[in-house]
Nucleic acid binder design. Sequence first.
DNA 1: GCCGTTTTCGGCCCGACTGTTTTCAGTCG
Length: 598
Amino acid sequence: MAAVPVITTRMLDRFEIAHALREIGALLELEGENPFKIRAYETGARALEGLSGDLATLVAEKRLTDIPGIGEALAGKIASLHLTGRSETLDKLRARHPPGILELLQVPDLGPKKIAALHAALGVATLADLEAACRAGRVAGVKGFGGKTQARILEGIERVRTRSADRRVLLADALLEAEPLVAHLRAAPAALAVELAGSARRGRETVGDLDVVAASHDPAAMADALAGSPGTVEVSSQGDTKITARLAGGMHVDLRVVPPEDFPTLLHHLTGSKAHHVKLRGIARDQGYTLSEWGLYRLAPENTDPDLPPDPSRKVPVESEEALYRALGLAYVPPELREDAGELEAARDGTLPADLVRLEDVRGMVHCHTTWSDGRATIEEMARAADALGIEYLTITDHSQTAGYAGGLTADRLRAQWDEIDRVQERVKVKLLRGSEADVLEDGALDWPDEILEELDVVVASVHSRMKMDEDQMTRRLVRAMSVPVFKIWGHGVGRLLLEREPYAVRVEEVLDALAASRGAVEVNGDPRRLDLEPRHLRAARARGIPIVLSVDAHSTGSLGYLRYAVTTARRGWVRRGEVLNTRGAAEFAAAVRPIGP
DNA sequence: GCCGTTTTCGGCCCGACTGTTTTCAGTCG
């Protein structure tokens, strides 16, 4: 009997496959391939990352091409990468290039053309080669390169090595730098309007650079204002309309300055996302316009030279972002939705939700810890802080008994806490609800017996232990937990800690199916490190009719402010006001979430 | 590479900034 060949490869998940597709794209780029082909790989990678459903199912049912941006060719490569961990195309590309060549693309200002030139002239194939060539002064001698470029490359190598080049920060940390800066710029006499743009405005969970746009007739004065901001460390480049600076926290900010009539289109341009723009500009073109950051122009009837600047007489005045979408026959798309995730089709068809949840719609604070478990504030301190925010009700949800590391409450302690809640209730206006963040145990049971659940007003069910289970185990565990005949709020669904810890391995859609067949809601956890469930899963939950709860997971009075991040994340998942349980009054909310019976 | 109430072929978003040029290519967002 012939020996069975040893299988040395393994299945890849969608993130690993996306990475492989980007590697193919990068290597093709080095070979000078058609830029649109390169873009197709990026589009495919992005589509995979945004996928809500189960990749294995799509591969098995040969439905990959149902995903917009994935055609026959990419589907074949994705299936191969998923099932075997390899792709013939990628293997061949890797064989044609030195293994270190891709790290050169990480160097700022170094793209495929320059890398190819350096490789041809000097044989540079790795970061180390490049550094040696720069230090020896050989790069400056290559045609098209000079002393300044050589120095910039050396700086760039340093940035790659210290990994500060593409450092991303949490949205909340980015806003901590951005909002004071915007306020400072707005105070400048030359400023007519200043807005934050970029991924921070879209509410992305992490942010790389800050983009700020200003309306002013005096760009130089605005550049001075940026240089004079307390958070600015240095101005690193300055053109007529664009100034780049580095902030104390290490982030870079791009400030763009234009006259007020160009402000709306520039703000829109800098808000992104890139994918949203590409599609929007295609729509503009279909309708006889060309759109750029400088405005909307009617295309000339005759085919004119595309390299000529647009004819000013054909410019369409655009007084706001709303007007821009309106001019193109589209409903206004709020920044949080601009990700090319179907929002432009919906804006065209009139199916874009007009009543996305807003911060002012939320009437109750859900998921709050106190000194009874691992919180830093007492019940009364939390209650008074909520009162001060104008909140109508507050759920006290300390940890359950199994969460010993977090000071989880035993049944006796929980009952004692109810007495304390009653005492505090007499002194505060905000309505206090008795709750618990009940651990989802290893076998999927909740951490409280029925006689306790019967007396609780609200239960958040969360995984806090055995987080490294494999996907089948974790899915079974959560499906069982979400199937118990109790109303439960699925707490911080996939357990990710942004920039720190990967999500649990779990098939979210199966858990949502179980929840939809039982009674419960999903949480949008506003802790800036979590923002969980994430938008694509929120859309999957909404599609199943599962209600949403916006929570703060507060461990202090200050973290009641996390509500804004829960709202932003929910909007990114297209969540409407009516779908959010804690936009309702206290009595209605309590009736909706009561774990057992009336 | 993908995609299609104009198209199965021929399109595919658009401009700012830098450095090295003497009119432009490369990179970036």
